[in-house]
Design a protein around this nucleic acid. Sequence first.
DNA 1: AATAAAGTATGACGTTACGTAAGAGTCAAT
DNA 2: ATTGACTCTTACGTAACGTCATACTTTATT
Lengths: 241, 241
Amino acid sequence: MKVKEVAKLSGVSVRTLHHYDDIGLLVPEGLTNAGYRLYSDDNLATLQQILFFRELGFPLKKIKELLDRPSFDRLEAFELQREMLKAKRDQLDEMIATIDKTLRAENGEIEMTNEEKFQGFDFKTNPYEQEARDRWGDAAVDRANERIQGMESDLQDGMNQIYTKLAELRHVDPASEEAQEAIGEWYAFLNRMGHYSPEAFAGLGEMYVADERFANNIDKFGTGLAAFMRDAMKIYAERNR
Amino acid sequence: MKVKEVAKLSGVSVRTLHHYDDIGLLVPEGLTNAGYRLYSDDNLATLQQILFFRELGFPLKKIKELLDRPSFDRLEAFELQREMLKAKRDQLDEMIATIDKTLRAENGEIEMTNEEKFQGFDFKTNPYEQEARDRWGDAAVDRANERIQGMESDLQDGMNQIYTKLAELRHVDPASEEAQEAIGEWYAFLNRMGHYSPEAFAGLGEMYVADERFANNIDKFGTGLAAFMRDAMKIYAERNR
DNA sequence: AATAAAGTATGACGTTACGTAAGAGTCAAT
DNA sequence: ATTGACTCTTACGTAACGTCATACTTTATT
C-alpha cells in the first residue's frame, strides 16, 4: 500500500506518515524503484499501536522507545492501552459530571467550591496505579498511598512518576536483573519509609522540588527506576545523617 | 488569587497562565502595584470554560473568538461541551472495542479488515450532527445525510464544516440578520440540491477538492456560513451552466 | 533590621508534531 | 504525448507552551 491509501485508512495525513518515517517511528517495509513508500500489513498494525499510544498522550519519542524494545509485547501493550483508555473515559465522565454540577451551581441549587470546578481536569488520578496494584499487590500500594496522603501535591507528582516507572517495567523481561533489582529496591524503599516519621517523608517531598539532582532523576520518561531509586535513597540517607 | 494558586487549583502551569494572558485569552482582572497578576472568581469560571474547550481540541485562537462574542452564552456552551464530551467518550469506547476485537483477531477467533483496525481513530463521526438535528429538525438533516451517502469522503469533510458552521451559529443571536440569512441559504441549498442529479452533486464534491477558491472558503474556522454558501452556489451555478 | 527563601515578572530561545508550500519526478489513462 | 493524480525531498511556518536567565517583591526567619 502506498501512502495515500494508508492515510485514508487510518485517518492520519500523508505528511504525518512522512514524519513518522523521518523520525524512524514507522519505516515502510518496502520502496518502489521510484522511491515510493510501500506499507505492509505489519506496518499497519504498528501504526495502529502508535495511534493508540498517541491518543493516550504519549510523545512520539517515547512511543518509539516502547516499540523498539526487544521485549515489546503487543498483547501486554493492548492491555495497558485498554486500561488507560478506560481511565481517560472515566476522566471524561468526571468532566461531564462537573459540567452538570456547575450548571446546578449556577442555578443556585447547590454550592460548589473552586476546587470542584476543576474536577476531571487535574490528572492526579493516576492511570498507573491499577497497574502497580495488580503487579505488586494491594498492600504495598495501599501503604504507599497512605504515606502520600497529607503530602503536598509536588510529592504526589513524584509518586506518579514512580508508578510510571513501575508500569514501564511491564515491558521489561520480569526475570531480568534490571527488573528484579528495581522491584527489590522498591520494596526496600517502602519498608524503609515505614521506619521514618511522616515529617521525614515530607522532607523527601521538599527535596524532590528543591534538589535538582533529585528532580532530574525523576524527569518524565528519563532514566530507569533502579537508578532513580538509588539516587533517591542516597540523597535521602545523606540528608538524614 | 495569584498565579500559583490558580495553577494549583486548575492543574495548568504558571507559564500557561502567562501565555493565556499574553494572547489575551485570560486576562487577570487585577494587578498589584508590583505588577503581580490577580485572578478573580470570574477569571476562574472563564478558565474552566477554556479548559473544557481545550480538552475538546479547540485551538486557543478559536476559544478566544468564542468567548469574545458578545452573545456568548455560558449555559449553551456547557450544553455543547457536554454533548461533545459524550461524543469523545463514545469514541474512546469504540477504541476500546477495537482493541478487544484486535486481540480476538490476533487469537484467530475472528477476521478483521484493515479498516476495522482503525475504528475510533477517524473522526468522521461528527459531533455537530446532533446539534444540527436539534436545531433544524430531523427531516432536514436526514435529507442532507441521504445525499452525503455515496459521496466521497472529501465532500464528507465539507459537510462536517457545514455542521461546524451551523453549530457556531448557536452562539450568534438567532434573530440576527446573519443567522437568518445563513439558515435561509442552508435550506435553499438543500432544496436546490433536490433538483439535481446525484452525478451533479458528486461533481460538487470534486470541485470542493479541486477548486481552491471553493476549498478556501471552507477552511477551518474561516469565514461565516453565509459567505461560504454564496460562493458555493455561485461556483456551482457557473459550472452547471 | 537584615537576610534568606519563595513567588512573580518579563524577555527570549527551544521543542514537539506536524502544516504548508515549492519544485520535481512518476504512473495510469486518455 | 499529454494530462492529472500521486509521490518525493527540502525547507520554512506554526501552536502551545517548556525552559532558562535575570531581576524585582513578598514572606519568613534569624
